[in-house]
Design a protein around this nucleic acid. Structure first.
Lengths: 203, 203
DNA sequence: GCTTTGTCGAGACGGAAGGTCTCGGTAAAG
DNA sequence: CTTTACCGAGACCTTCCGTCTCGACAAAGC
């Protein structure tokens, strides 16, 4: 019996192929518009107009605006925070935090991050993407911690440390009441390294 | 010369007065709807309908939806986290964090907080209100820390500690990847008390 | 070359939501 | 009993997302 919902096509793909130029033009337009907009929301129509593309071409390949933003962000991730492998946990933590803070200080990535969060507040699908993204960042940080097993107290709560780091990062990034400075990065790295080494205090 | 933009009325207020019942009905409707909606967005029309009130009556007294939400939230603040004054910094911090976490676990307040954040992502005016709100919370926490000067290292970075606490709180609250449990509250309180006592580690 | 098939740009369209405007009615002050 | 300001109700405008339609065009197979 034939399944009408069968995904396998009855014959190979024959029609016109995806236009790679359009894909690049869309992602580039997103980054340019976000950088120029200075935090103001960027609409789908604006993106399509700037990319010289029909809206349908966007929605054919991405399920929502948030998905486009996230792909543009990961495209930026060539400058991503690469996990260092230094001597001490404290040094590694500090350079990880510093790189994270610096990435967020660059207005190009900051604009994408901010828009992504705004989108996640509106679109549940975008919220899922953000959750996946933040989870991958947490995993990277956990791997860094696990790379220094001799410096970790046996009962150290790594999840707590990870969330303190990224919690402070997002909190300051979004509220912007205090800068994500290199000094703050150093202090945070040192404090969390000490916390990891001390383990939880006895009750 | 007469200033047409003069704010002072040429005579005392004479007309009909503000209906206090309507005000209460609006704020109550907001809380009820948010609690029932289970996180789904609540619209102005729904609020007006539920409160038996015209939309204009809402916009006459509040500049935006976010402002209504915030007033409803501060109305809830009778259950607010009251700064304790115990023996040790660690005990005070732990009970402060525990109370904060528990407040966010109550679905009634959690729904308002979530909606407020959603609104802040859209409406700059609401974002300002949220900034003011979070600032007052930070002030309360700083006051708690300052209440134990003998337990603070002279070079302790109080802003860093405050932001670690609220950063982790909001991060976990909004991402919900990990619970705001009493255990986590205890661990966080202990870790931050230790950090405050140790001060910044020497370079 | 011709047909089929899937993508392209452009834009009309529907729907949701916030916020404004209007209108007839009503309570308070004088 | 007149003026003033608020009230409920709802039409209305605007913005923006996401879908649908249309004629054009490119790739694959015959």
């Amino acid at each position: 019996m034939t399944n009408p919902d069968d995904d396998t096509p009855r014959r190979a793909h024959t029609g016109r192929r995806r236009n790679e130029d359009a894909r690049r033009a869309i992602l580039d337009a997103v980054l340019v518009l976000l950088a120029e907009s200075g935090g103001a929301p960027v609409t789908i129509d604006t993106i399509a107009r700037a990319a010289g593309v029909g809206k349908q071409t966007i929605y054919r390949w991405w399920p929502s605006k948030g998905a486009v933003l996230l792909e543009a962000l990961t495209g930026l991730a060539g400058d991503v925070v690469s996990p260092p492998r230094g001597e001490t946990l404290r040094a590694d933590l500090t350079s990880f935090v510093t790189a994270t803070f610096r990435g967020a200080r660059a207005e190009s990535t900051a604009a994408v991050l901010r828009s992504l969060v705004r989108e996640a507040a509106r679109d549940p699908h975008a919220a899922d993407l953000v959750r996946t993204f933040t989870e991958s960042r947490r995993d990277a940080l956990r791997a860094l911690l696990a790379g220094h097993p001799d410096e970790l107290a046996p009962d150290a709560d790594l999840d707590l440390i990870v969330d303190q780091l990224y919690g402070l990062f997002w909190y300051r990034f979004l509220l912007a009441h205090r800068p994500l400075s290199d000094e703050a990065a150093g202090a945070l790295g040192a404090a969390l390294a000490a916390q990891a080494g001390a383990g939880s205090v006895r009750p």
